[in-house]
Design a binder for these strands. Sequence first.
DNA 1: AATCATAGCAACCGCGCAAAT
DNA 2: GATTTGCGCGGTTGCTATGAT
Length: 372
Amino acid sequence: MGKGRAPCCDKTQVKRGPWSPSEDLKLIAFIQKYGHQNWRALPKQAGLMRCGKSCRLRWINYLRPDVKRGKFTVEEEETIIRLHKALGNKWSKIASRLPGRTDNEIKNVWNTHLKKRLTTERSSNSSAHESKLESSITSLSSSSSESESFFSNERSNSPNSTTLGNEINDQASQVTDKIEEDSNKQVSNELISITKDPKESSISLSSVEPNIVTTSQNVAYKAEEQLASPSSYLGPYDFGSISQEVDKPNHLFEIPWELSNFDFCNQLFDDDSLGGSFQSNEVQLGELPASQNIILGEKIVQEIEARKWSHDFENEFGLLSETKKPNNDHFLPKDYAIEPEMDNTQTFDFNGIARPESEIDFSYIQLWSSWP
DNA sequence: AATCATAGCAACCGCGCAAAT
DNA sequence: GATTTGCGCGGTTGCTATGAT
């Protein structure tokens, strides 16, 4: 064995392209139980034919329980615009100020919406009459960050800036100078707070940028609310905020919070036929042959599918008692509510096997039921 | 109704830095 | 200290949905 670390992965044997529901499930189940200390080793251990890099990306951008989906709020967009002005394309830095948003998502929003919008506003404003400029300046003074960004850029970047500058009267110049000065101060302060390592920084965000903190606090509060109220938080594919969702398939099924009691994974890992290799977190996953890991992943998926259809069957033939019916049907498509609400103390008997209490939290797992 | 253009977004690629050996 | 890989980041691509003609 030579120097350095082991090779990343066999590029010829990894799957690429869109992730399937079963792959998502395998990844979520594995990370829930074992975490992701080593992305390189994870795919093999989880039974995924994916590069570790791909797994990391999928987890961070899509499957993480705290990832926030849906349209960006006006406050978030303004924050992005401000931070982009200060930092440029430092998407991860910007994302760090927007809890629940990923750098990839922010990057996409910037490239598809914000950049375009700012360009449009610039061009429309550059052809405006003096009176309109004065009007804009008036509105700028009311601390619209987006407009601040536009205006300061306009003055410095527009080819017509000299001509325009001659048209602007002294009073307007004074106002814009003040705005730019304030804006630069604000940007500088943001830069300080962002570029400093949070662990080392003692700078209070609230002391430098009230608007951003307000936004962040809102987002943080919502995130906390979601975590504190499991029944209202459905994770990445949130039916509760479906009205805010864009470009999402309509047919989803969800694994409700209650399902964590079933912990079929635990049962699978305890299965004697697998040599009990997964009986505790102390087990070295690397010791398990890859083929067995793949079998484990497949079994997880199969069991979820079986549960889903079992439930559908019960619904179809009226075998589901009223007391067992889910109380969250209002946000779930009828056909895809997998399991009824369960007594937390009862163990789930699937195919005659009593299930132990769960260690894995599947509460936020939702999957596309129809995959292209 | 069919075709084409555009928008939106998930995923991949390649690079640089940090860390492991 | 040199070598090699892991990880994270920013840029880019390509697929899908939607709108326009």
